[in-house]
């Protein structure tokens, strides 16, 4: 039973990872790609790790999976923020279909 639930989680996680990769290819600019990559890969990888936690139970391997999921939840959005901020400062342009860029307006005002 535990194995069944665990493998379900792993399959769902792998599916979300796949969606993230498709988004990485299809979306037009860096910021949209970062969105897809961060969200889907975070939940997908956490799903895979949670699945292994359920399969292994409270053993050394299972707790390591839990700890990895926790660290990914903290570090993945932080690194996405760092990348987005750095590329905006470096002047990477938004996709031409973008409707508003408040950050650029405010930087130019100063």
């Amino acid at each position: 039973m535990n194995e069944f639930i665990g493998f379900t989680f792993i399959i769902i996680g792998a599916l979300f990872d796949l969606f993230g990769c498709i988004g990485l290819i299809r979306l037009p600019d860096l910021y949209n790609r970062l969105q897809a990559a961060t969200k889907c890969v975070t939940l997908g990888t956490c799903g895979i790790l949670l699945g292994s936690l359920i399969i292994f139970g409270l053993t050394a391997a299972g707790m390591k999976a839990f700890l990895c999921a926790l660290f990914i939840l903290i570090t993945s959005p932080t690194s996405a923020h760092a990348l987005a901020r750095a590329s905006h400062i470096a002047g990477v342009k938004l996709w031409e279909g973008s409707v508003v860029d408040k950050l650029k307006e405010d930087t130019e005002k100063k």
Partner: peptide
């Protein structure tokens, strides 16, 4: 977080790519 992933999956798999991005 789960809703966010379904949202991204919907936008990515939709043939017309329904996005209207911007920085607010």
């Amino acid at each position: 977080c789960l809703l966010a992933n379904l949202d991204v999956a919907y936008r990515v798999l939709h043939p017309l790519l329904p996005i209207k991005p911007g920085i607010v």
